[in-house]
Lab assay of single mutants.
Amino acid sequence: MTYKAILNGKTLKGETTTEAVDAATAEKVFKQYANDNGVDGEWTYDDATKTFTVTE
């Protein structure tokens, strides 16, 4: 399944996708990606669109 992350960081804005077996696995991948890029904020998840959003 393909999951998407939308990054609304102070220094990084954009989107990325990952293939994962479930939302929990995708969330770990996206949170690591955000952390590696200095983005730390509030996370939300929309199951209907399989989209995570982080906003700083």
Rank of each mutant, 00 (worst) to 15 (best):
T2G: 05
G9C: 14
G41D: 02
F30A: 00
K28S: 09
E19R: 13
A20K: 03
K31C: 06
A24D: 10
T55C: 07
I6C: 07
T51I: 06
K28V: 09
A48I: 11
K13H: 11
Q32C: 06
V29Q: 07
D47Y: 09
D36G: 05
G38D: 07
N37A: 12
Y33R: 04
V21H: 12
T55K: 06
G14P: 03
E15D: 05
A5K: 01
D46W: 03
V54S: 02
T51L: 04
E27A: 11
Y45F: 06
A23P: 10
K4N: 05
K50Y: 09
T16N: 04
A5S: 04
W43Q: 01
L12W: 15
T51A: 03
E42R: 09
T51F: 02
I6S: 04
E56T: 07
D47H: 11
T2C: 14
G9M: 10
V21S: 11
T44G: 06
M1A: 13
K28W: 09
V39M: 11
L12G: 07
A34M: 08
A24P: 08
K50D: 01
A26E: 01
K50R: 14
D47M: 10
A5M: 15
N35Y: 15
E42V: 14
Y3E: 03
G38T: 03
E42P: 05
T11F: 14
W43T: 01
M1R: 12
N8T: 06
K31M: 09
A26Y: 00
K50Q: 09
D40A: 11
T51K: 02
T49E: 05
T18M: 09
A34E: 00
E15K: 07
G14I: 15
I6H: 05
T17H: 10
K13Q: 12
Y3W: 06
A5R: 00
N37G: 05
E56Q: 10
T17P: 02
T11C: 15
T49Y: 05
T53L: 07
Y3T: 02
T55V: 09
T53V: 08
A24W: 10
F52W: 07
G38S: 06
A24Y: 10
Y33L: 08
Y3R: 02
I6T: 05
D36Q: 12
N37S: 08
K4G: 03
T44E: 11
K28E: 09
T18F: 13
T16M: 15
A24S: 11
T25F: 08
L12T: 10
N8L: 13
T53F: 12
V54A: 03
V39S: 02
K13V: 09
A23K: 13
V39F: 14
A20M: 02
E27P: 00
K13F: 10
N8V: 12
D36L: 12
T51G: 00
G14D: 10
K10S: 10
E56K: 03
V29S: 05
T2N: 06
N37K: 12
K13G: 05
E27G: 08
E19Q: 14
T53G: 02
E15P: 04
I6R: 05
I6E: 04
K31D: 01
D22N: 09
D47C: 08
T44V: 11
F30C: 01
T16S: 07
A5W: 12
A20T: 05
A24G: 08
D47L: 07
A26L: 00
V54C: 13
Q32H: 06
A26N: 01
T11L: 12
G9E: 02
